[in-house]
Amino acid sequence: MSLPSTPSIETLTPEAVAKTIDHALLRPDMTVDEVIEGCRLCAKYQTASVCVKPCNVKIAADVLQGTGVDVGTVIGFPHGNTPAHVKVCEALAAIDDGAVELDMVLNIGHLKSGRFDEVRNEIQVLTVAAKGKLPTCCVKVILECSLLTDEEKITACKLSEDAGADYVKTSTGFSTGGATIADLKLMRANTNPSTTRVKASGGIRTLDFLIECLQAGADRIGASATAAIVDEMRARKAAESKCQ
């Protein structure tokens, strides 16, 4: 489902809002029952995907089979410190379990150390391996913007794009900050919209902020407040209809 050129309450529908959301089920203390409940919520609201911990990919894939909701997971989460070959193994195992979207954390320390070739190569090796196993696999690179300077964010965007990633993503939601409008505008301005999309994640709990993120250039939203956001959109649309 494509977004309107100017996303707003007036131009969006509840269904379109839901299809921008990767519903996050990543809390370290989350139980299997909570994961299953969250996946059923995704099926009910028809989100773009669910993003679960690697250990829960198979569970999510079983629950969501035939629903039209994709299963995603995280790689090198939450700090990006595992070696490249371990991230690749993690990615391939996740695909075997049913994941079709991979949100990988880049090596933040190596980026800040100026080891750009290593950062690019890590993303590229994982992307090539994942797409070699599953050509339709979607690879998103988490920058963790709250830990980076603007110059480092721009460099990370360009390295990710050069490496063939499908998305650049603001945050894990488990560091010192989440998505900001300034970061989204910066990321959008420094990637090619025809090849590289932008995902906003971290602290997006309201419909108004979700729409602000879309207006700033986000194509996908990572959120756990899916029901509240979509229900608010439905309520506003219903109120809008009554006023007409």
Score class of each variant (00 low, 15 high):
Thr195Cys: 12
Lys133Cys: 08
Arg205Ala: 04
Ser194Gly: 05
Cys145Val: 14
Pro193His: 14
Leu143Met: 14
Lys131Val: 10
Thr191Cys: 13
Tyr167Leu: 14
Thr155Tyr: 04
Leu186Val: 11
Ile142Val: 11
Lys185His: 02
Val128Ile: 10
Lys153Cys: 13
Gly203Ile: 06
Pro193Asn: 13
Glu161Ala: 15
Glu152Asn: 13
Lys158Trp: 11
Ile181Thr: 15
Leu186Ile: 13
Lys153Asn: 03
Val139Phe: 10
Gly177Phe: 04
Ser146Arg: 03
Ile204Tyr: 03
Gly203Asp: 02
Cys138Leu: 08
Gly202Gln: 05
Lys169Trp: 10
Val125Gly: 04
Cys137Pro: 07
Thr136His: 07
Val125Leu: 10
Ala189Glu: 13
Val141Asn: 07
Ala182Phe: 03
Thr172Leu: 09
Lys140Glu: 12
Ile154Phe: 08
Pro135Leu: 07
Met187Lys: 04
Val139His: 07
Glu144Cys: 07
Glu144Phe: 09
Cys145Lys: 04
Pro193Glu: 12
Lys153Pro: 02
Gly178Lys: 03
Gly173His: 04
Gly177Asn: 09
Val128Phe: 00
Val141Glu: 10
Thr191Arg: 03
Ser194Leu: 12
Arg197Glu: 09
Thr155His: 07
Ser146Asp: 07
Ala130Gly: 06
Thr196Leu: 15
Ile142Glu: 01
Gly173Pro: 10
Leu148Val: 09
Thr149Ser: 13
Gly203Gln: 02
Leu159Pro: 05
Lys140Leu: 12
Arg205Asp: 00
Leu134Gly: 00
Leu143Lys: 05
Leu159Val: 10
Gly178Arg: 00
Ala189Ile: 10
Pro135Asn: 05
Ala189Ser: 15
Thr170Trp: 04
Leu186Asp: 03
Ala165Pro: 06
Ala179Pro: 06
Ala179Ser: 15
